[in-house]
Simulated assay, not measured.
Amino acid sequence: MSDQWGLCKGCKWWQIEPDATVEDQTVGFCIEQDLQQFKIRITGNGGCNMFVAGKPARAEGSSEKPPTAEPVR
Rank of each mutant, 00 (worst) to 15 (best):
M1A: 14
S2L: 05
D3P: 05
D3A: 11
D3V: 04
Q4L: 10
W5H: 12
G6R: 01
G6K: 01
L7A: 07
L7Y: 14
L7Q: 15
L7S: 13
L7I: 04
C8D: 05
K9S: 09
G10R: 08
G10C: 04
G10M: 04
G10Q: 12
C11H: 04
C11S: 07
K12Y: 00
W14H: 05
W14P: 01
Q15M: 03
I16H: 05
I16V: 12
E17K: 08
E17D: 13
P18L: 08
P18N: 14
D19A: 13
D19S: 15
D19G: 07
A20H: 12
T21S: 15
V22I: 15
V22Y: 11
E23S: 15
E23I: 01
E23V: 03
Q25N: 15
T26K: 10
T26D: 07
V27C: 06
V27P: 04
V27Y: 13
G28Q: 04
G28I: 01
G28T: 03
G28A: 05
F29V: 02
F29H: 15
F29L: 03
C30T: 02
C30G: 01
C30F: 02
C30H: 02
I31T: 15
I31N: 08
I31C: 10
I31E: 06
E32K: 10
D34Q: 11
L35S: 12
Q36W: 06
Q36P: 01
Q36T: 07
Q37I: 03
Q37E: 08
F38W: 12
K39A: 08
I40D: 03
I40L: 14
I40C: 10
R41K: 15
R41G: 02
R41H: 02
I42R: 14
I42P: 00
T43L: 07
T43I: 06
T43K: 15
T43Q: 14
G44M: 07
N45M: 10
N45W: 11
G46P: 00
G46I: 00
G47A: 03
C48S: 12
F51Q: 01
F51H: 13
V52W: 02
V52K: 14
A53P: 05
A53L: 09
G54W: 08
K55H: 10
K55F: 05
P56V: 03
P56S: 11
R58Q: 08
R58V: 03
G61A: 09
S62Q: 09
S62F: 06
S62M: 09
S63N: 15
E64A: 14
E64Y: 09
K65C: 07
K65G: 00
K65S: 13
P66N: 07
P66R: 06
P67F: 05
P67V: 04
T68S: 13
A69F: 04
A69Q: 05
E70I: 06
E70C: 00
E70G: 07
E70S: 12
E70V: 11
P71G: 06
V72M: 09
